[in-house]
Every structure is written in C-alpha cells, then in structure tokens.
Design a protein around this nucleic acid. Sequence first.
DNA 1: TCGCGCATGTCAAAATGCTGACATGGAAGA
DNA 2: TCTTCCATGTCAGCATTTTGACATGCGCGA
Lengths: 149, 149
Amino acid sequence: MPVPPPHPAQDVTEHVGYRLKRTSAALRSAMDRALRDHGLTVPQYSCLELLDEQPGLSNADLARGTFVTRQSANVVLRGLREAGLITRPASAEHGRALPVHLTPAGRERLHAARGAVYAIEQRMIGEVAPDRLTALLADLDTMAEALGD
Amino acid sequence: MPVPPPHPAQDVTEHVGYRLKRTSAALRSAMDRALRDHGLTVPQYSCLELLDEQPGLSNADLARGTFVTRQSANVVLRGLREAGLITRPASAEHGRALPVHLTPAGRERLHAARGAVYAIEQRMIGEVAPDRLTALLADLDTMAEALGD
DNA sequence: TCGCGCATGTCAAAATGCTGACATGGAAGA
DNA sequence: TCTTCCATGTCAGCATTTTGACATGCGCGA
C-alpha cells in the first residue's frame, strides 16, 4: 500500500516543498543580481549582516547562521578578509574560536548593499496580505523546527 | 536617508528571506538523508518525479522544473542514464529537444523513494494549521511571481 | 588529577553548480 | 526564399559547497 501524499495535490507543483524551492530560488537569484553591483555574494552579505548585529561571532557561529558547513563559511570569511571587510585575530585569547569583527569598510559596504536587498524583500512581500505576514513567518518557523533543524 | 526595512524586525532572523532559507535548508537536509538510503540525490529525485508526471520532458524542461541551469540538469540526467533509470534517444525526430522517459527500474526506484519524501513533507506540515496550508502555498507562489521568477 | 567528550579551525579531495561559449535545428518575418 | 532570431544540447573552465579527516583547546565527571 503506497504512502498517501500529505495533502490533496494534482501534481508536484502543488507540494509545499516545490513551492518552497521555487520561492527560495527566485529570491536567491534576485539577491545575486542586486549584490553583484556591490561586489558581494549572497553568503558574504549574510555574514556581514550577522556580524553587524552580533559582533565577535566565530566562524562556526556564522556557518550555523548561514546554514552552510564550517568549511564553506571559512572560504567566505577568507574572501571578506582579503577584501578588507572583516578582521580576525590570528589566535584566540581564551578558547579556540576566533571572533570576527567588521571593519569600517565592511560596515560601509553592508549599509550600501542593504538598501538593494531590502528593496527586493519589499517587492517580494508587497503582494502578500499584511495580516498574513506574521502567520507566514510563524509557519515557516514551525516547519523548520518540525524537521529538526 | 536609509531605506527602511520592509517590516518591523528586531533582527535578521525576523526577515522573510532568512526564514525562507532556514526552512528550505532544513527540508533539503532531511531529503538528502532520506534519499541516500535509496541511492538518489535531491536533484535526481526531482527529475524522476517530474518525468513520472510528464513523460517526454526535455533536458531544458527539467532544468526549468528543478530551478537549475541546463548544464546542471544535463549532469543529473547523465547520472540517471548510467543508473538505468531513464532513457534518452540519441537524436530527435523533429526538433532538437531529446525527450526523456522513465525506465521500469526508474519508476520502481521513484515509487520506493516517494514514501520517504512524503513522510518528510508530512512531518514538515504536520504542525501547521490545516486552514493555513492553502494560504501558505498561495503566498509562496505570490512571492515567487513578484520576484519575476 | 586525568581522561573523555565536544566544539572549533583547517586541510585535502570530491561533488555539485554556474558562467561563457559554440553548433544545430526550427520558426517567424522581410 | 532567405535571413534573422530563439531554443536546445553540449563542451570547457571556474567557483562554490560538501564530505572526510585531523589537530587543538576547553570543560566535565570519574
């Protein structure tokens, strides 16, 4: 006996997973185009945004925050370092984690790019009924947690 | 004057883009683990699902349907071909597109893997209020279209 | 005190995906 | 008819990401 689909669906495009991937891909594509003008990639921008909010995050922290592996985050940080947008001590005082901080240039670059990214998000949610937005955020969160993160 | 954020948000994790990425990453990770037992990757499974529903799709069709480039889809098809899960003619009768079809082994593999994937989707949307599900699908669609696909 | 577990940073290799480019086949319009 | 434009399939090169592995530093419990 085959497993029934989770909800009545005519075809694959009716599934939540498909829509999720579609929307996610569209957002990623739009952000890629917009950030190219600022000399940033999406992972780079994500790291800058997290660091602006929580200075001193470690490489592993940023990896978790951007949903990639530590190794990938390490490559991103190397790029940001070479671009002079972040600083990272050569050795740690206490533990093993190396706290990352934005440089003035990094903060400036982030603030410049933020406008473009916010405009995209605005365009994305502009057509969604405002009273549904809170529910949408909550549902996305619920689904992520149900999958065990 | 800086561009205001699209909606009141304390931090980055309150943004729709962040939640979207988080949920998408969680789903991708769960599907990866589940499909590994069936010897399939997520892109491979996606192609099989599309082909089961619409036999004869071309490589370019599948690329659009799985939100990757034609080149990436081509690599996926090569893997499926070598695994004996699909067939593809060496030359086209009419146009230039080469119609792809599932082999019996491909259909069998898909049906076996489908149960695991549906279980994940069920787990994902299990905690979401049923009356919100339709709205959620619609909102995701609205956002994707607003970004111009 | 001494292991043991655990998190972190990093190296190497492989897989995956994308950009750029080119040739082919068809269709639409001059 | 012929020419131009577009979609497709494919090759090569590069960037990104992941898997696997290993060494280091800290804290907790025996």
